[in-house]
Design a binder for these strands. Structure first.
Ligand SMILES: [Mn+2]
Ligand SMILES: [Mn+2]
Ligand SMILES: [Zn+2]
Ligand SMILES: [Zn+2]
Lengths: 152, 152
DNA sequence: TAACAAAGGAAAACGATTTCTTTTTAGTTT
DNA sequence: AAACTAAAAAGAAATCGTTTTCCTTTGTTA
C-alpha cells in the first residue's frame, strides 16, 4: 500500500466514523501508521509540528480520543499510567494486546476471552457489561533475549 | 471484626509490606474499608481532612500507589480515565473486577483467565509477561433495574 | 534516647482536559 | 463553478488531576 492509497484509505475511515477529513486528522493517522510501536500524545504532537506551523496539544488529545473511540486506533495503558496510542495493522475486529514495555512493540491477541466472560458475569450478577479492558504487559522476544544476554 | 481489631489488622498488613505504620496510612485504609464502593484520591483526601488538620494530596496519592502496589487495595481504571481505589473484602488472592459506573459497586471475578492466557502468549510470542489489566465496566443489577424502570 | 531511613508537606511541574472563541469543512444554494 | 451556511474542528488560555522535587518531620530499631 503506497502513500497515496493510504491517504485515500484514511479519508474513507474518517468518513465512516462521521468525522470530517481535516489535514491534521489525516496526519495523525499517517504518523501512527508509519510507526511500528505505540506513541505518546506528545510524541505525535512533535511529529505534527514538523508538518504544521501551529497545532495545539488539545487538538492532538481530542483527535486521538475520537479515533480510539471509533476503534481506528488502540489505547495503550502503560504501567507508568501514561496513555499511548497504536495503529493496528493486523487484526481489524475487537481484540487485545501484549505490549513490550522496553521497545514498544505490540502483539495482537486475536481471541478475546473477555467477550465470552461478559456473558457469564452478566448472568451471575444480573448486571450489564458495557466495556472491558484487557492488556498484557511485559517484554517481547527480542528484548527478553537481549536482557538475558546482558545478565548471562 | 470490630474497629479495634481492624486497626490492629491494618498495622500487621502494613508491616508485612515493609511500610511504616503511620496514623495517616492507617486512616487511608480505614476510610477505604468502611466504604462499600470505590473512591477517588480526592474523596479520600476530604475524608482525611476531617481527622487531620494538615494532610497533602501528594501524601494520599503516594500512599494509595504504595498500597495498591502491595496488593492491599485495588486500582480501578474508570472509563472517564480518572483513577479510583477500592478495598477488597471478598477475594484475597489475585483476581479482577466488574465495576458499576453508576453506583460504584464492585463485584469480584474470582477466576482469572488472564493467568492461563499468559502462558499461551509467552509460548506463542517467546516473550515474558510481567503484568496484566483485566476489568469489566457496566451497570450492576440494581442500577440496571432502576434504569429500566425509568425508560419503561 | 540517638541514629537512620522512611514518610509527609509545600510548591512547582507535568500530563490531560475544559471552556470559549475563531477557523475550517462539507454540503447546499445560487 | 463560486458563494453561502450550519456544524464540526482547532487554537489559546485556564483548569484539573497527578507526580516530582526538595526539605522537614516522624517512626523504627538498637
Ligand atoms: Mn492489534
Ligand atoms: Mn475484588
Ligand atoms: Zn521489546
Ligand atoms: Zn450500580
Amino acid at each position: 500500500m503506497n502513500h497515496g492509497t493510504m491517504n485515500r484509505c484514511f479519508g474513507a475511515i474518517l468518513k465512516e466514523l462521521g468525522l470530517k477529513e481535516t489535514p491534521k486528522r489525516r496526519a495523525i493517522l499517517e504518523i501512527l501508521a508509519e510507526q511500528q510501536g505505540f506513541l505518546s500524545p506528545e510524541e505525535i504532537w512533535h511529529a505534527l509540528r514538523v508538518r504544521f506551523e501551529t497545532i495545539g496539544l488539545p487538538t492532538v488529545y481530542r483527535n486521538l480520543e475520537e479515533l480510539a473511540a471509533g476503534g481506528v486506533i488502540s489505547t495503550i495503558i502503560h504501567p507508568s499510567r501514561q496513555l499511548y496510542y497504536y495503529f493496528c495493522r493486523g487484526e481489524s475486529g475487537h481484540h487485545h494486546h501484549f505490549i513490550c514495555t522496553s521497545c514498544r512493540r505490540v502483539e495482537d491477541i486475536p481471541e478475546c476471552t473477555a467477550a465470552t466472560m461478559e456473558g457469564d458475569i452478566a448472568t451471575r450478577t444480573g448486571g450489564k457489561i458495557t466495556s472491558h479492558i484487557v492488556q498484557f504487559n511485559g517484554l517481547c522476544h527480542r528484548c527478553l533475549v537481549e536482557e538475558e544476554g546482558r545478565t548471562a
